[in-house]
């Protein structure tokens, strides 16, 4: 499975996606991402292990992100590789879901105020 969901401290969830998120990969992450969208409010999506992603994978991330934000939650992307980052910035998704290079900063950005 190219996706792993880790619950961290302070209600923060880290979703680690990896491998090739092509048509088949997008089908694999669709359901877990939809579960994350429906059940978590403070989410870091770690993309550092993703080698390839096209619009179907982005779609899955955006849908999940919409669901999180509609509940007043926060979601950020963490450390995409250059080719994947180019797909994200070219499609304009980074203007909707910010990209962080540093994990501690990403976690801090979604952590609810005490």
């Amino acid at each position: 499975m190219p996706i792993k969901i880790e619950d961290l401290a302070d209600g923060v969830t880290k979703v680690v996606i990896s491998g090739r998120i092509d048509i088949a990969g997008a089908a694999d992450i669709d359901m877990p991402m939809s579960i994350v969208g429906g059940s978590r409010r403070n989410v870091v999506i770690d993309l550092s292990g993703v080698e390839f992603m096209a619009s179907l994978g982005l779609r899955s991330i955006v849908l999940s992100g919409k669901s999180i934000m509609s509940k007043g939650g926060k979601v950020v992307l963490l450390a995409p590789q250059p080719a994947v980052e180019e797909v994200i910035t070219t499609s304009g998704i980074d203007e909707l879901i910010p990209i962080y290079k540093d994990e501690a900063a990403a976690i801090a950005a979604v952590t609810p105020a005490a």
Binding site: A54, S55, L58, R59, V62, L63, G65, K66, M69, S70, S91, I93, L96, I97
Partner: peptide, 11 residues
């Protein structure tokens, strides 16, 4: 904003 985002057209 993300809440206004439409999915179609990304590709």
């Amino acid at each position: 904003s993300l809440l206004d985002a439409e999915i179609g057209g990304l590709g």
